[in-house]
Simulated scan of single mutants.
Amino acid sequence: MTDVLQAPTVIVLAAGRGERFARSGGGTHKLDALLAGVPVLEHVLRSVAASGLACHVVRPANGTDGMGDSIARGVAATTDAAGWLILPGDLPLVDARSLLRVAEGLASQPVVVPFWNARQGHPVGFGRECRAALMALGGDAGAAAVVRAQRQAGRVLDMELDDEGIVLDIDTPDDLARAEALLETRGAA
């Protein structure tokens, strides 16, 4: 189990505009859409709370933040963290155990990339040595360049997880319906 004093902080990205969800017929912002009667973002925050890891939520600052801007702001607000797990706020079914596994992986490599059924998911974990690179991010690109640079240096741990929630993001009302069905299946199991 990760020592909470040495654990990374989960940066929950909640600053996006959710335009794909609105364009595809969503009647509200995707993070406010209800999944089993609870807003999508609240599901994410409950998983983070259940993990016991520290959390920082990045909300809209000026309406023009891209993913890279949001990551940089989140890291800048938590510079004393032992590392960071970057978690988009639209992954309502991510399991707290997945967060802890990625956090634990940071003990062996400065970047941890989770996968489910060969699909890359979130959260992606970054150790303190990635701080400057994360704070230099901007625009919509996210942290892919940081992962790529660390991968070229042989400093990435690819981690297969048994958690479909790490890849099931909510971008359309159909995604929300799939999440609802998976949640019902989990409840029946």
Rank of each mutant, 00 (worst) to 15 (best):
M1H: 14
M1Q: 15
T2L: 13
D3L: 13
V4W: 03
L5I: 06
Q6E: 12
A7P: 07
A7D: 08
A7N: 03
A7L: 07
T9P: 02
I11K: 00
V12Q: 06
G16R: 05
R17V: 13
E19K: 12
A22F: 00
R23V: 01
R23F: 02
R23W: 01
S24D: 00
G25Q: 11
G26P: 02
G26I: 04
D32R: 04
G37M: 06
V38H: 12
S47L: 01
V48P: 01
A49C: 09
G52T: 06
L53W: 14
A54F: 06
H56Q: 05
V57T: 04
V57L: 06
V57I: 11
V58P: 02
V58F: 09
R59Q: 09
P60D: 07
N62Y: 12
G63H: 12
G66A: 15
M67D: 10
S70C: 04
I71C: 08
G74L: 06
V75S: 12
A76D: 01
A77T: 05
D80F: 01
D80N: 03
D80R: 09
A81N: 01
A81H: 02
A82R: 06
G83E: 08
G83P: 02
W84V: 02
I86Q: 09
L87D: 07
L87N: 01
P88V: 03
P88D: 15
P88M: 10
G89T: 02
L91M: 14
P92T: 03
A96Q: 10
R97V: 13
R97G: 15
R97C: 11
R101P: 05
R101E: 08
A103S: 06
E104C: 04
S108H: 02
V112A: 01
V113S: 08
V113E: 13
V113C: 15
V113P: 11
V113M: 12
P114N: 07
N117P: 03
R119I: 02
G121F: 12
H122C: 15
P123A: 02
V124C: 12
V124M: 15
V124F: 04
G127A: 13
G127P: 10
A133C: 10
L134K: 14
L134A: 13
M135Y: 15
A136N: 15
L137F: 07
A143W: 10
A143H: 05
A144V: 09
A145M: 05
Q150N: 10
G154H: 02
V156P: 11
L157C: 00
D158L: 06
D158P: 00
D158W: 02
M159H: 04
M159D: 05
D162I: 06
E164L: 15
I170E: 12
I170R: 02
D174L: 13
D175W: 08
L176F: 10
A177S: 08
A179D: 01
E180R: 09
A181F: 10
A181E: 07
E184M: 13
E184D: 11
R186V: 12
R186S: 11
G187Y: 08
A189Q: 11
A189P: 00
